[in-house]
C-alpha cells in the first residue's frame, strides 16, 4: 500500500514528462494512449528495482524513454483501454494560435531526428544538464556535448531547407 501510494505520487508529479514523451514518439492519438499506459506499466514494474542511486526523475526519464524506443508497432490490436482521452489531450483554451503553430514546428523538428538524437533533444528541452543527460543516456559527457552540437547543426540545416 505504501509502495502504491509512493508510486502514484511520483507518476502524478511527472505526468507532464510522460505526456511529452508520448507526443514525441508517436504519431496517432491511439498510439499515444497505448504508449502512455505502457510507460506507466513499465515504471511500475521497474519501481522495485529503483534503489535511489539516481534521482527519481533521472530513473523515470530512463525507463520512459527506453519504453518508448522499444515499443514494437507490429501488433494492431489493443488491450483494454482505460478511458484516458483527456490525459493525452492538452487543454488549449484560451487558444493561442501562434503558440500552437510554434509547438507543431518544434514537434516536427524533433520527429525528423533519429531515435538517439530525439532522446537527447527531449532531455535538452527539458532543461537537463549534460551530466544528467549522460546519466540517462549512458553516453559520456563529451559524447553528449558532441552529439548535441551536431543536433544544433542539423536543426539549422532543417531551417534552411
Amino acid at each position: 500500500m505504501q509502495k502504491e501510494s509512493e508510486f502514484t505520487q511520483i507518476v502524478k508529479e511527472h505526468e507532464g514528462v510522460i505526456y511529452k514523451i508520448t507526443s514525441i514518439y508517436t504519431d496517432t492519438h491511439e498510439d499515444k494512449k497505448d504508449l502512455y499506459q505502457e510507460i506507466v506499466y513499465q515504471l511500475w514494474k521497474a519501481y522495485d528495482s529503483y534503489r535511489g542511486e539516481a534521482k527519481i526523475s533521472t530513473w523515470m526519464y530512463r525507463v520512459a524513454l527506453n519504453t518508448a524506443i522499444t515499443r514494437f508497432k507490429k501488433e494492431k490490436k489493443r488491450g483494454i483501454q482505460i478511458p484516458m482521452d483527456s490525459l493525452v489531450k492538452r487543454k488549449t483554451e484560451p487558444y493561442d494560435e501562434v503558440f500552437e503553430e510554434r509547438l507543431q514546428v518544434v514537434y516536427s523538428h524533433i520527429k525528423r531526428l533519429n531515435e538517439l538524437e530525439k532522446g537527447l533533444m527531449l532531455l535538452l528541452l527539458e532543461g537537463k544538464k549534460y551530466e544528467e543527460i549522460a546519466l540517462i543516456t549512458g553516453l559520456s559527457l563529451t559524447n553528449v556535448g558532441t552529439r548535441i552540437s551536431r543536433i544544433k547543426q542539423k536543426l539549422k540545416t532543417q531551417i534552411i531547407k
Binding site: K20, E38, F72, G79
Partner: peptide, 30 residues
C-alpha cells in the same frame, strides 16, 4: 518551457487511473 508550464497546471491523472494502468489486463498487447 511554455508547454511544460501549461501541462503543470493541467494535471489530470488520478490514483485510480495510475493503478489501473499498472494492471496487466489493461496493457496494450505489445
Amino acid at each position: 518551457s511554455k508547454l511544460s508550464d501549461q501541462l503543470e497546471t493541467q494535471k489530470k491523472l488520478t490514483n485510480k487511473m495510475i493503478i489501473m494502468m499498472t494492471k496487466e489486463k489493461y496493457r496494450s498487447k505489445i
